[in-house]
Simulated scan of single mutants.
Amino acid sequence: MHNMESLKIFLELARLSKAAYASPIAHKYHSYKGKPFDDQRIIHGSIGRGFCRIFWNIESVVICFRGTRESVDWQISNLKAFPVKLRDCPEASNTLVHRGFQKTLNYDDKTTKLRSLDAILRCLEENSLLDKKIAITGHSLGGALAILFAVKLRSSHPDKVRENLESIITFGSPAVGLSTFKKFYGKLGEKTVRLINSSDAVPFTPPLFYQHVGSEIWLQNEGISTSGGWLVRLVKALKGPASNFSSDHSIVQYILKLKALINSQTNSLER
């Protein structure tokens, strides 16, 4: 899943993930599969700040989760790594996920006064968005939320997910759950792609017992690898400056790397 068309879709979703950090967003300047969006909604989470944007056009809906923007995000979400039971999925038994990530979906949306997860679902239902092709995305913490939201959406709307979910694309996402979650995630893994830029440290976290889902695409200066694995990435990362662990996590760097890869493929096709 890394031909030219796929890379262009990754770039569109990376740009959306970057835009999710800002407010407001001019949705008409963003697109999915080359088609601009017609409308959007924002869902607010902790302390009144928007953490989820829903964009759509006549064909598709993209549910985009914002990543860590301020230190309070780490205090609220990222540092609470103690595993807890997965909520909102009655069919799951003893499925354990990151406490902080799950808690983020439980904050109240300031607009609807609903729990954030319920506010997202209501927006999707009231606008008939689950009848469109569905993509879920996010950077950093947003990538973790995208993965966690996907199983909750499947639980509440299994038929719509089976028929219309196209992809779950994350950028620099940490792991979300233990082996029980990976097993429960099941076939969603076939539609999940985790992009990792060079020495980005966040995909190494949380370090103990947590397991990634889906397939991995490792973006490097020399090209793309789909068979790196965390140990290979760690060995290479340790050979470079320690600052790369942090700088390579920036969504801006993901965008620049994808642009470079697209340009490289374009040039090679023109030769």
Rank of each mutant, 00 (worst) to 15 (best):
H2Q: 13
N3D: 15
M4R: 15
S6C: 08
L11F: 05
L11I: 06
L13A: 00
L16D: 03
A20E: 07
A20L: 04
Y29C: 09
Y29F: 12
D38S: 14
Q40G: 00
I42Y: 04
I42E: 02
C52W: 08
F55I: 11
E59K: 11
V61P: 01
T68C: 02
T68F: 00
V72F: 01
Q75K: 12
I76N: 09
I76T: 12
N78H: 00
N78C: 09
K85R: 12
E91N: 11
A92D: 06
S93H: 06
H98P: 14
G100M: 02
K110D: 08
L124R: 10
L124P: 12
L124Y: 13
E126Q: 08
N127D: 05
L129C: 06
D131S: 13
D131A: 14
A135S: 14
A135I: 14
T137F: 06
A144H: 07
A146M: 08
I147C: 01
I147E: 05
F149G: 02
V151R: 05
S155K: 07
S156K: 15
R162A: 09
N164S: 14
E166S: 04
P174N: 03
S179I: 06
F181A: 03
K182C: 07
Y185E: 04
L195Y: 01
T205I: 14
T205G: 05
P207K: 10
P207R: 11
Q211L: 10
Q211E: 14
Q211P: 03
V213I: 11
S215M: 02
I224K: 01
G228F: 00
L231V: 08
V232H: 07
G240S: 13
S247C: 03
Q253K: 10
I255W: 00
L258K: 02
L258N: 08
L261I: 12
Q265K: 15
T266M: 09
T266W: 08
